[in-house]
Simulated scan of single mutants.
Amino acid sequence: MPALGASLATSGAVGVASDLAKAPSGRVRMLPVHTDLAGLFPWGGLRRGSTVSVHGSTSLLLALLAEATAGDSWAAVVGMPDLGVLAAAELGVAVDRLALVRHPGADLPAVVAALLDGMDLVVTPRARLGDAQARRLSARARHRGAVLLTVGSWPGADLELRCASYRWDGIEQGAGYLAGREVTVTARGRGAAARPVRTTLRLPAPGGGIAPALPALRPRPATDPVGVA
C-alpha cells in the first residue's frame, strides 16, 4: 500500500493508475461494487465521472472500493489520517492498490485534483473544502473519468448514501465479542437516482466483508416447550 506525499501528487507525476498510460477511449465506464451494494446505484455500479457522497459509515466508504481494487483499478484516500488499513483489508480492499495521503495540509484541493488525473477512485472529506472548490473537483472527476467519493455532504453530488439503523451482533446478555453489524443504507441522488432506494446489510459481516441482512427472527410463543424442564 503506497503512501503518497503532497509533493508527489502536486508534481504532475501521477499517471492513469490502472494502466499507467492515457485512458483509452473504450475504457469501461463503470466500476464494479459488491453485489449487495449494486442495487443502490441506478447504473449498477460506480459510474466514471460521478461524485458519490457517503454519510455515517467509514465501513461503507471502504466497501465501495473493494470490488474495483480487487480488479485492476487504483484508489487514493486523501486527508483521512485515522483510516484503518486493516479494516480496509477486512472489507475486501486490495491495499496494494490503495494510495494514502494522510496529511496533505493546505494542498488538499490540489492533491485531490492531481490524483483525479491518475486514479480510478479518489476519497476525500468535505470538511476543509468550500463549495466552489468542491464543485471544481467534481468537474475535474467528470472530465477525467474518475469517481470522486466524499465523506459528508457535497454540493451537486450525483448520489448520496446514508447509513442508519445500526444493530450489532455477538453480544448475548451483556457478554461476548462484537461479531458483525447490521445497517440500513439509503441512496438518493439526481436524475436516474432521484427515487430513493434502501437496503439492509451486514457491514461488516462476521469474518469481514459484506453479507445480506439476516431474516428477522420471529418471537417464540409463550407455550413453546423448548427449554422447559
Score class of each variant (00 low, 15 high):
L31W: 02
L203D: 02
S138P: 04
A157Q: 12
A6E: 07
P212S: 07
L46V: 10
G5V: 10
R162G: 12
A89E: 14
V77K: 03
S153G: 12
S7R: 14
L121P: 00
L129V: 14
V77Q: 03
S50I: 00
M30P: 01
T150D: 00
A3Q: 13
G49F: 06
A13V: 02
R142G: 15
P225K: 02
V123K: 06
V228M: 11
R198F: 02
K22L: 15
A164W: 08
H34V: 01
E160K: 06
A21S: 14
H143K: 13
A99P: 09
Q173C: 01
G79M: 07
L37G: 03
L214M: 05
G180I: 12
G92H: 10
R102Y: 14
L203T: 10
R142L: 14
L20K: 09
V52F: 09
G56E: 08
L201S: 04
R128L: 15
R102V: 00
A146R: 05
S11C: 12
P81V: 13
V77A: 14
L61T: 03
D82E: 13
A9E: 08
G189K: 02
L148V: 03
L115W: 09
W168Q: 13
P24K: 08
R198M: 10
P196G: 13
P81M: 13
T10Q: 02
T51W: 02
L149E: 07
L20H: 09
V147P: 01
Y177K: 15
G130H: 03
A141H: 05
A21H: 12
L64M: 11
R142S: 10
G79F: 09
A175S: 15
M1N: 13
P215R: 14
P32L: 11
E90W: 06
G174A: 09
T150M: 08
G191H: 12
L8A: 11
G92L: 06
D82M: 11
V16P: 03
A75I: 08
A66V: 00
L214T: 05
A222P: 00
L148Y: 05
V151P: 00
L65H: 09
S18V: 00
L121Q: 08
V151F: 02
G44Y: 02
G92R: 14
R167L: 10
D120H: 04
A110R: 13
G152E: 13
A205S: 10
L100S: 04
H34W: 01
R202H: 01
R126N: 07
E67V: 05
R220F: 08
T186P: 12
R128F: 12
G49R: 03
A75L: 07
L108N: 11
W43K: 05
S25Y: 13
L137R: 03
G208R: 09
S50D: 10
S59A: 15
L149A: 10
A106D: 08
A99S: 13
L178E: 11
A216D: 03
A38G: 04
S25H: 14
A114E: 10
A193I: 09
A157P: 01
P196Q: 04
A87V: 06
Q173Y: 05
A179S: 15
V183F: 07
P204G: 09
A164Y: 04
V95M: 09
A113Q: 05
E172I: 14
A213W: 09
G227N: 11
P225E: 05
A87T: 13
S11Q: 07
H103S: 13
L121W: 02
E172A: 14
R27Q: 07
R142D: 06
A193K: 03
D131E: 15
P155V: 05
R136A: 12
P104R: 03
